[in-house]
Simulated scan of single mutants.
Amino acid sequence: MLYEREQTLGVDEFRQVLAHSGLGATRPVDDEPRLKAMLSGSNLIVTARLDRPGAPLVGVARCITDFSWNCYLSELAVSASAQKLGIGKGLLDEVRRQLGPSVSLILASVPDAVGFYERAGMTRLPDAFWYRREY
């Protein structure tokens, strides 16, 4: 598997991996301008591709960070056909490598993925707050 920082990830590949991962049910996959804004507003995008030239995207981690204190992992998506192969953990590891040891990694999990994040060694936080988006 080839993990790399890919800041110019195209909206079509991003949409496809979201849809194929199951996150398409909770992401605006039919709203191309919003997907473009999500990508352009991210300053750390790590991708997973099969280890060959021109290989299709099978996973993505999309983050917003100051590279100093905190990083918010907005999406960790792996295509269903590539799940259970360690790609999600590999994406987490590469994000952490890119950030270095002085940056905290924070995320909000969909209910079905809570066990994955616990097995990956992440700690649940008891106190989190948010204003839910209106649309």
Rank of each mutant, 00 (worst) to 15 (best):
L99F: 06
C63P: 10
L44F: 11
A19G: 07
V17W: 09
S102V: 06
T8F: 04
L76G: 05
Y3N: 02
G59E: 11
A77D: 06
P101R: 13
A55T: 02
V110P: 15
E94C: 14
G86W: 06
A37C: 09
F116S: 03
E13P: 10
R49M: 07
L91Q: 12
E13C: 02
S81L: 06
L85I: 00
R27V: 01
L105H: 08
L23C: 07
G59L: 11
M122Q: 02
V78S: 11
T47V: 14
I87P: 15
D30T: 11
V110W: 09
A19Q: 12
E4I: 02
E118M: 00
F116T: 01
G86L: 04
W130V: 00
D12N: 06
W69V: 05
G24W: 12
W69C: 08
C63Q: 05
V29M: 12
L9C: 03
Q16C: 12
N43T: 10
A80K: 14
S68H: 11
V46D: 14
F67I: 04
F116M: 02
A77Y: 06
P101A: 08
V11E: 04
R49S: 08
M122V: 00
F67S: 07
S74P: 10
E94Q: 15
L44K: 14
R133P: 13
S79V: 08
D31R: 12
E13S: 05
F129V: 01
D93G: 14
A128H: 01
L35W: 10
R34A: 09
R27G: 01
S42L: 06
V110S: 15
I87S: 14
R27Y: 01
I106S: 06
R97M: 09
H20L: 12
D127P: 06
L76W: 03
R119P: 08
P28T: 05
Y72L: 06
I45R: 13
S79K: 13
P56D: 05
D93L: 11
G115T: 00
Q16R: 15
S40E: 11
